[in-house]
Lab assay of single mutants.
Amino acid sequence: HNLTITQGKLFFHYNPKLCLSEIHKMEEVSGTKGRQERNDIALKTNGDQASCENELLKFSYIRTSFDKILLRWEPYWPPDFRDLLGFMLFYKEAPYQNVTEFDGQDACGSNSWTVVDIDPPLRSNDPKSQNHPGWLMRGLKPWTQYAIFVKTLVTFSDERRTYGAKSDIIYVQTDATNPSVPLDPISVSNSSSQIILKWKPPSDPNGNITHYLVFWERQAEDSELFELDYCLKGLKLPSRTWSPPFESEDSQKHNQSEYEDSAGECCSCPKTDSQILKELEESSFRKTFEDYLHNVVFVPRKTSSGTGAEDPRPSRKRRSLGDVGNVTVAVPTVAAFPNTSSTSVPTSPEEHRPFEKVVNKESLVISGLRHFTGYRIELQACNQDTPEERCSVAAYVSARTMPEAKADDIVGPVTHEIFENNVVHLMWQEPKEPNGLIVLYEVSYRRYGDEELHLCVSRKHFALERGCRLRGLSPGNYSVRIRATSLAGNGSWTEPTYFYVTDYLDVPSNIA
């Protein structure tokens, strides 16, 4: 807008934040220059609390790290170098490059900038070799853009010569660093050979998330399962459950009422301010606690030095998902009996873990797994792929695949051998790939016309006998059925096997 004052003059007093240069501009645009008398524009009460600059400061050096910015700028000295009290560095987070010096300023003089007072450097006698002032900004957020400017702080001049310097606002972004852990990993099994893994992005990506790394490792069953005799009275049979499938998407929606109208769909109840505040506090606490764990609990591995020492970490090797089922080394339970199943799973520490690289999504279907087997899954978020990966501390989750139908069934015939004193040795093959492992066998036998009897055969007993022995049988026709019990439950009964026990007292003698 054009402003013209045809008559009258300007009068400025007691404006401590208004620089004289701005008042002189007002004289020019209003056409009143030359009308004012000496005392109409006070030299001592206008701009006496402001830094009124008329020179431009330029930054000469900028260096960044993930949490620091090192700045240096060209030296500046007023005509009387004693008038320079120091520099004021202003900075704040700036997602967009549209910041002005006066953003967030209120009537009390406060604003949204963080201000650092910096002492002037030592003055050199040689004007050509003056030290460049600077400042190291610490405690910054990774991968965050900051708006920065600097200006001088000078003393009051009796001659009211307006001098000083100020830089333009520059924008500097800190470097990326390792992201925080992925949030809320959930693993479920939808079949006997697959596990579905879902997660949420890290709360602090500290860069642009480029991919996720998912490692999985087959877990050995508890050692007590191999040692305890679950045929003993009072000892509860062990059981394991597989990871249940995901709930429906509708039930997972946030901010939804727990109660549904019987007449149909209901609208979600909005969260109160107290609920939102509580969630923010919980989120802040979780982030602080995660940072504490990362800094205190997890110790970084030592990389190899120039002395030739090897990095103890196993090298990563990509495998196809079809090879995942046989990740671990199978060892027989008892070496003397080769027909026992290889369900003991000690994992070799030198073995390469299978892994998958996930790009542009937060889910993965891990296939080719062994049925009813526990897996430990390790999830890392990465925001750099080359020249070397920059990934987060791992988040861990466990899951067990679903049982395989008929995996616990005894394959092959049940054979028998009759000894003296009416002892019958029953023999059968253990299931080759049971659900988890076989903890015991149930032997059901009966003599024709009598009630059915049951015998429990422990895992250890089966390994020693290759089956079991029935003792003290009365003469007669017998039928026997056997079924295995694994961590997933009972298998199917075998087809009945028949044998006849004679009275050993009636056996004919070869003595003449």
Rank of each mutant, 00 (worst) to 15 (best):
S203W: 11
D204T: 02
D204A: 13
P205F: 10
P205A: 08
N206P: 01
N206L: 01
N206Y: 01
G207W: 00
G207I: 00
G207P: 01
N208H: 05
I209Y: 07
I209Q: 15
I209E: 11
T210I: 03
H211I: 13
H211Q: 10
H211L: 09
Y212L: 01
L213T: 04
L213S: 07
F215P: 02
F215M: 13
W216K: 14
E217D: 05
E217V: 07
R218E: 12
R218K: 08
R218Y: 15
A220N: 11
A220L: 11
A220R: 05
E221N: 06
D222P: 14
S223G: 05
S223L: 09
S223E: 12
E224T: 08
E224W: 13
E224L: 10
L225P: 07
F226Q: 08
E227P: 08
L228F: 13
L228E: 14
L228N: 07
D229F: 11
D229L: 08
Y230S: 11
Y230H: 02
C231H: 00
L232R: 14
L232N: 15
G234F: 11
L235T: 05
L235N: 05
K236C: 06
L237Y: 15
S239L: 05
S239N: 04
S239M: 03
R240G: 06
T241W: 14
S243N: 11
P244K: 10
P245D: 06
P245K: 07
P245F: 07
P245C: 09
F246K: 07
E247Y: 10
S248A: 12
E249H: 07
D250S: 09
S251G: 05
Q252H: 08
Q252W: 13
H254I: 13
N255H: 15
N255M: 10
N255Y: 04
N255V: 08
N255W: 12
S257H: 06
S257P: 11
S257V: 12
S257G: 04
E258T: 10
E258P: 09
E258V: 06
Y259K: 10
Y259N: 07
Y259M: 10
S262W: 14
A263L: 12
G264D: 09
G264C: 03
G264R: 13
E265W: 12
C266Q: 15
C267W: 01
C267R: 00
S268W: 04
C269F: 04
C269Q: 02
P270D: 03
P270S: 05
P270Y: 08
P270E: 01
P270C: 03
K271M: 07
D273E: 12
Q275C: 07
Q275R: 03
I276C: 14
I276Y: 08
I276A: 04
K278T: 04
K278P: 02
L280V: 15
E281F: 06
E281W: 04
E282D: 01
E282A: 05
S284V: 13
S284T: 13
F285K: 02
R286S: 03
R286T: 03
R286Y: 02
K287T: 04
K287Y: 02
F289T: 02
E290S: 02
E290C: 02
D291C: 02
H294E: 01
V296K: 11
V296W: 15
V296Q: 12
V296A: 09
V297F: 09
F298V: 02
V299I: 13
V299L: 02
P300H: 12
P300K: 04
R301G: 03
R301H: 12
K302V: 09
K302W: 10
T303Y: 08
T303G: 13
T303M: 10
T303H: 07
S305I: 12
S305P: 12
G306D: 11
T307N: 10
T307P: 11
A309T: 05
A309Q: 12
E310N: 10
E310Y: 15
D311C: 03
D311S: 11
P312T: 14
R313S: 06
R313E: 15
P314S: 15
S315K: 07
R318Q: 13
R318L: 07
R319M: 09
L321G: 07
G322L: 14
G322D: 08
D323P: 08
V324F: 09
V324G: 11
V324Y: 02
G325K: 06
G325W: 14
G325F: 09
G325E: 09
T328V: 14
V329F: 15
A330H: 11
T333P: 12
V334W: 11
A335D: 08
A336E: 14
A336G: 02
F337R: 08
F337P: 08
P338W: 14
P338D: 10
N339I: 07
N339G: 07
S341G: 09
S342P: 05
T343P: 12
T343A: 14
T343K: 12
T343E: 06
S344D: 10
S344F: 11
T347Q: 15
E350W: 08
E350R: 09
R353A: 02
R353P: 15
P354Y: 13
P354F: 09
E356D: 06
K357F: 13
V358W: 15
V358F: 11
V359H: 08
V359C: 08
N360D: 02
K361H: 08
E362N: 11
S363W: 03
S367A: 12
G368V: 10
G368D: 09
L369K: 00
L369I: 04
L369Q: 04
L369E: 07
R370E: 12
R370V: 07
R370I: 14
H371P: 07
G374I: 04
G374E: 15
Y375S: 01
R376K: 13
R376S: 03
R376V: 08
E378P: 03
L379Q: 02
Q380S: 12
Q380F: 15
N383K: 01
N383D: 01
D385E: 09
D385Q: 06
D385P: 11
P387L: 11
E389Q: 13
C391S: 02
C391N: 01
C391H: 11
V393I: 13
A394N: 15
Y396K: 02
V397M: 13
A399V: 04
R400T: 03
R400D: 01
T401K: 00
M402W: 05
M402C: 11
P403S: 02
A405H: 13
A405D: 13
K406Q: 10
A407Y: 06
A407L: 12
A407P: 04
D409R: 06
I410L: 07
I410R: 05
I410Q: 08
G412R: 13
V414N: 02
V414P: 10
T415M: 15
E417R: 05
I418V: 12
F419S: 11
F419K: 11
F419R: 11
N421Q: 06
N422K: 15
V423W: 11
V424C: 11
V424N: 02
H425Q: 13
M427A: 04
M427R: 08
Q429F: 12
Q429L: 08
E430L: 03
P431C: 03
K432M: 12
E433T: 08
P434H: 07
N435I: 00
N435T: 00
L437E: 09
L437Y: 13
I438T: 13
I438Y: 03
V439Q: 12
V439N: 03
E442P: 01
E442L: 05
E442C: 03
V443R: 01
S444F: 15
S444G: 11
R447N: 11
R447I: 15
R447C: 13
R447H: 15
Y448G: 00
Y448M: 03
G449W: 01
G449P: 12
E451M: 14
E451K: 04
E451A: 05
E452N: 15
E452R: 08
E452Q: 14
C456G: 01
V457L: 15
V457R: 14
S458F: 07
R459V: 12
R459P: 05
R459G: 04
K460N: 05
H461G: 08
F462A: 07
F462H: 13
A463L: 10
L464T: 12
L464H: 11
L464D: 07
R466S: 07
G467P: 01
C468R: 14
C468A: 14
L470E: 01
L473M: 05
S474T: 09
S474I: 10
P475R: 11
P475L: 07
G476P: 00
G476R: 01
G476L: 00
N477D: 14
N477K: 12
N477I: 06
Y478M: 01
Y478S: 01
S479E: 15
S479G: 08
S479C: 05
I482Q: 01
R483N: 14
R483L: 04
A484S: 06
T485E: 09
T485L: 15
S486T: 10
S486G: 04
L487K: 15
L487Y: 14
G489P: 03
G489T: 05
S492H: 15
E495R: 08
E495H: 09
T497Q: 07
T497N: 05
Y498R: 12
Y498M: 14
F499K: 01
F499L: 10
Y500K: 09
V501R: 05
V501W: 03
T502Q: 06
D503Q: 09
D503L: 04
D503E: 07
D503N: 12
Y504P: 11
Y504G: 08
L505Y: 14
L505M: 07
D506F: 09
D506R: 13
P508R: 02
P508S: 12
S509I: 15
S509Q: 14
S509R: 11
S509Y: 15
N510P: 12
N510W: 14
